[in-house]
Design a protein around this nucleic acid. Structure first.
Lengths: 135, 135
DNA sequence: ATCTTTTTACGAAAAATTTCGTAAAAAAGC
DNA sequence: GCTTTTTTACGAAATTTTTCGTAAAAAGAT
């Protein structure tokens, strides 16, 4: 299901902006992109039009200036991307991935602490499995 | 430095095979690829030739049948890929990435345990850093 | 020796992704 | 009203990645 979500890198960059600042015009998105690198306005426009075709974004065309919003959830997308990335880069091993993350010095002590707490929570969830905790 | 390592997806697939089974001929790599999908022999050959040009692999051409081996380390490459992926998909946040990994039900209890141990080790390392710890 | 198979080299086609030029429509400014 | 600016639509060029056809060389088989 969510395996159909496969934005390209440029598309993901735009999704990030839409997730972060909510529904936006092409101009607003392009300006954010420009903070990081040179991008032509029509380049951004075209990409967003393609994304609309693919169903990655919805757009409100009731006004002349269209407003786009992400049509796929941030978490859902991250889950799909992570699954794929873990498979291709770490042969599917979550352990190796985390090992690299922690060993590679890419985490602050605060992040380590936060991650540790998450592990404990995840362990508790595992332990309870079966009694149907619903959402 | 290691930011120069940027294999494409098909290239990464080949690197995985070379890392896993060591120096290999084009035929051997192609056969492994074929276990998962249709790939022509010359397609694999060409890719590996390009990889040799890029410096991703080395090859021994002393025999008629060339033998290729990975010229970039598995960990080094994973580190570079992970850094990039974390930035683009998780806005640079290791915490969010791990959250998704643990919350997404993509980890077995065994992996959880292994990960927890790694965290503790990483914490000890961090702790030593500040007060000039003994090794 | 001749024919077949295996391998490399090379180039280019095919596919996917990214970029942008140009035009037309709508809105805004004067 | 007329000009300038902003926006969308569209198509195509440019770039990157993947795939494969063809040829030539080397090795092996008969």
């Amino acid at each position: 299901m969510s395996q159909r979500i496969k934005p390209t890198e440029a598309e993901l960059e735009i999704l990030q902006i839409l997730w972060e600042q909510g529904p936006s015009t092409v101009r607003a998105v392009n300006e954010r992109l420009r903070e990081r690198r040179e991008v032509g306005y029509t380049t951004t426009l075209k990409l967003m039009q393609i994304m609309a075709e693919k169903g990655l974004v919805d757009r409100d065309t009731s006004q002349r200036t269209h407003v786009y919003r992400a049509a796929v959830g941030e978490e859902e997308t991250q889950r799909a991307l992570l699954r794929r990335f873990m498979d291709v880069a770490f042969r599917g091993s979550a352990t190796r991935l985390v090992m690299q993350l922690l060993g590679g010095g890419q985490t602050t002590p605060e992040e380590l602490q936060a991650i540790k707490e998450m592990i404990e929570r995840a362990e508790r969830r595992e332990g309870e499995k079966g009694d149907g905790g619903r959402e």
